[in-house]
Amino acid sequence: MARIALFPGSFDPFTKGHEDIVLRGLNLFDQIIIGIGRNANKQRYFPLDDMVRFIEQTFRDYPSVSVLPYDGLTANVAREAGAKFLLRGLRNTTDFEYENSISQVNRYVYEDVETVFLITSPHLAPISSSIIRDLHRYGKNVDAFVPYKLDQ
């Protein structure tokens, strides 16, 4: 049976830190589905269709990585996709506090799912999507932080 992991997030944008988690996750899982969750309460900065294209381009040489935009509960999406694992990256203890609570709720919704946390590689830990959005919004080049080319 294939070990399938769902790597959920808003990925607004998908960063080199996210890429690192996926690449390292491939050592643990047979397939990784990058799930881009839609949040009706939040306005995306980068269009969803663009982000799907950028992520697919980033992993074009990795047939075991796919991208899935979704609505609804992450745990339900994992179940429907046949994923028994949720893959998450942790940059710091604040991330852990937040992710720990979410992982408990995901287990409540889908009791067969396990959340696997990978610690972010140290040189990538300062990178966050919100910082990248702010830099980009004010015309700064963000190529050092994302694994694809964004228009300025």
Rank of each mutant, 00 (worst) to 15 (best):
L26N: 02
L26Y: 01
I32Y: 00
I33S: 04
I36G: 08
G37R: 05
G37S: 12
D49Q: 14
D49M: 12
D49E: 15
D50A: 14
M51V: 12
M51A: 09
V52C: 13
R53F: 10
F54L: 08
F54W: 15
F54T: 07
F54S: 07
F54P: 03
I55R: 10
E56G: 14
E56V: 08
Q57H: 13
T58A: 10
T58E: 10
D61F: 10
Y62T: 05
S66K: 09
V67C: 07
L68C: 07
P69Y: 06
P69T: 05
D71W: 05
G72S: 05
L73V: 14
T74V: 14
A75Y: 09
N76E: 15
N76V: 08
A78R: 13
R79A: 14
E80Q: 15
A83R: 06
L86A: 02
R88E: 01
R91T: 10
N92H: 04
T94Q: 09
T94C: 00
D95W: 11
F96N: 03
E97T: 13
E97A: 13
E97H: 12
E97G: 08
Y98A: 12
Y98I: 12
E99I: 07
Q104E: 10
V105T: 11
R107D: 07
V109E: 09
V109T: 15
E114F: 00
F117H: 06
F117N: 02
T120R: 04
S121W: 11
L124N: 06
P126K: 07
I127G: 00
S129F: 00
R133K: 13
G139M: 12
V142W: 02
A144D: 06
A144P: 00
F145P: 00
